[in-house]
Amino acid sequence: MRNLFSFIARNYFFFVFLLLETLALIMVYQHQHYQRSYFASSANAVAGQVYKWSSGVTDYFSLRKANQQLAEENARLLHFTRESFLKTDRQVFTFRDTLYQRQYQYVNAEVVNSSVSRRDNYLTINKGKLHGIEPDMGVVTFNGIVGIVASVSDRFSSVISLLHKDMQISARIKKNDQIGTLLWEGYDYRKATMTYIPSHVALSVGDTIVSSGFSVIFPKDLFIGTISDFEIRRGDNYFSAEVELAIDFNKLKYVQVVNNLMLEEQQTLESQSENTAR
């Protein structure tokens, strides 16, 4: 026993190293396997606060661009308001219209921190639990998919960006309704890859890619980007297409968090039919 102690005492440097390294690696492992683990995410109150201060300063530099973006969005929304339609039929009865029921709710949020240069990128947004945001909600802008909420604190949320090796999104080619999987292979943050497109499909450069709506997280028909190149890779029997993303993740400032109000209904139904099939 004494020998053991003296052995540890002599090599204590190595044992302290082993202890700390193991501790760190356990944390890495937990983070990779349980994305919601909370300890050192920048949704953490301290880091969130520091980023809020920093964003408070740097916001002024991009005011012109932010204004322009907001004006564009306003114009686009105005396009859909009731005021921009002329009522031609007096018989139309819109009060308590049961034909339409709201499925998606949007919460506006500002990006306070983000990265594009790593293999797994995250964003932090300035809305959290208090604003009704929960893990697994989608994050979008008017022209594309941004990511999925991973963890929330009271006032901040941490978002797994589309630029992450574990992100796979169901996407659709608009002109022929073919479905494929959109993922990011990590070279260029302006370009993603759409894969598993059947090889008989006629593709051409410039085809529009939109979200499929198959996932319960994102609404359908969100513009994602356009095809800039495509090929059948060696050993594959499907097309892989390079997609130029409409979103520039590097200057992303304002995003919308999507809340699918019918998510629970759809998931319950789907799990029910899976169980009966078994």
């Binding site: 760190a24 944390m27 890495v28 983070h31 300890f39 050192a40 301290v46």
Partner: peptide, 23 residues
């Protein structure tokens, strides 16, 4: 070792890389 661990963990806290910089 402890100073290095503390430094790494602080950076992790700010960049969503739990434990990576610490390790």
């Amino acid at each position: 070792l402890m100073s290095a661990f503390g430094m790494g963990l602080t950076i992790d806290l700010f960049s969503d890389t739990q434990g990576m910089h610490a390790a």
